[in-house]
Amino acid sequence: MSSATPETAMAGGDAHARELETRFRLALKAQKRRAVMMRVGLNIAGIVLAIVLWEVTRFLPGVNEVLFPPPSIVIAEAIPMIASGEIPNNILVSLKRAGGGFVIAALLAVVVGVLTARLPVFNFLTEPLLHGSRSLPAIALVPLSVLWFGIGEAAKIALVCWGAFFPIWVNTFIGVRDVHPIYLRSAACLGAGRVQTLLWVVLPAALPMILAGLRQSIAISLIVLVAAELSGATAGVAYMMSMGHQLFRVDVMFIGLFLLAALGFLADRLFVALTRKLFPWYASSH
């Protein structure tokens, strides 16, 4: 039986073997560190390369700096806007809307997803409504929302929530519905009740699908956010871009584009990092 357990250190006082293991561990660590450094280095190099290429465009014939401002102009414009607190404030306002809508959507969608997957009556009752609503793009609701609720915060959060709800719901539904019956049977014969099975078995088993839905909805939250802010707001990243448009300030529009890309990217990375931290079994078992 013990033959099946891995040997981490050689038995007895074999000094050479232990030294060899130490060296092996160090080499492995160094190799992993090199791999990470290389990846981060290339990531940065890619960004720098893109900026340099973009900057070079100003020397090309026929390129209008006002319509296609090089990074030096965009950055020069952005610095005072950051210092004055204008950009940080717009980011904060946008994040509150996108984050608020996303969190509410996530909570609702997971609950509805579990209910629809586990209770056939509830599923059949809501099936046509939910699937019908799902086909409506959130952006199509923006004009109506402005008409009904004006340009307040609640309306924007509700729009983001609407858009983010459906992918999480659909994924949770599929994840919960398709939990391997062997897990449910194991839980039952180990003495777990309905609620216990849901909490300790069904939800973790469905987690990969739920996470996929959440990740998809992060991107959707930003899309709906932009649509909502473009059609009526007094602050926010997309509002700032809309102002840039009206004042013919293409550089400000570029700042907005860059901020949206950075927000989307960082939110996704943060999500992946958080997933790894919270669910160590998940990333490595696939």
Binding site: R185, S186, C189, G191, V201, P204, A205, Y282, S285
Partner: peptide
């Protein structure tokens, strides 16, 4: 729980 079951495979909770 008085009747313990051991399945062919994939029955351990992966999480």
């Amino acid at each position: 729980p008085e009747r313990g079951v051991v399945f062919q495979e994939y029955a351990l909770f992966a999480w």
